[in-house]
Amino acid sequence: MNATYQFNWSVIDAHMWPMLVGLVLMIRLTIVGMVISLAFGLILALMRMSAARPVRVLASGVIDVVRSVPLIILLFWLYYGLAAQLGIAMQAFTAGAIALGITGSAYMAEVYRGGLEAVESGQREAAAAMGLTRAVAFQTVVLPQAARLVVAPTINVFVMLLKGATIMSTIGVADMIFVARQVSLRTFTPFELYTFAGLVLIVITLILAAIGGVIERRLSKGAGRHA
């Protein structure tokens, strides 16, 4: 190899297609993980804010533990641990999606809680004082205000999960990183392939951030339809 490294574009050109197939798989994984996170995160957040202390303590315990466990360890527990200990064998994709879903739920719980708690207490009080039930007050007053506050951090969680999906290759999910490794074993060009993967992820992240900005502006315009 020369002192001046020659970036070999042709490798990318030649293997673009399988890389992108790997990317699509990553995105699918991330979306499934995110859907799990959106649903269970909300449940966890509501539990975390429950009036019943034991429920609150349980939820915050789960959130703290999950957030402190590295994703790769969670993934290995799910994929190898469950199979070895309990005989529960799942497909690599399933294990990956669940691992992302568990991590994402813990983070989304905090995102939701942040959004819900940022709605001033006077808003709930005014809604309660006019005779709205808690459910209706939540739906018409609290949620619409919290929604615009959670858009940006929700996109951050999505990006985090997308990056998290890059370690799924360690259990054999054929994602973009997996493809990059496989190809570079033959071509000896890991730098090109991983750089390409990195650039693709940066582009996706920027696009997501832009979409988030648009949604946020839409919401804050005050699309307050309710009746």
Partner: peptide, 27 residues
């Protein structure tokens, strides 16, 4: 029982009219 607060507590994501309508329609 109607209540008026020191800091108004209008719902910022609704117009003035919608603020007044909400209790009528939903309560």
């Amino acid at each position: 029982v109607g209540m008026v607060f020191q800091h108004f507590n209008l719902f910022p994501h609704m117009t003035a009219g919608e603020n007044v309508m909400l209790g009528l329609t939903r309560a």
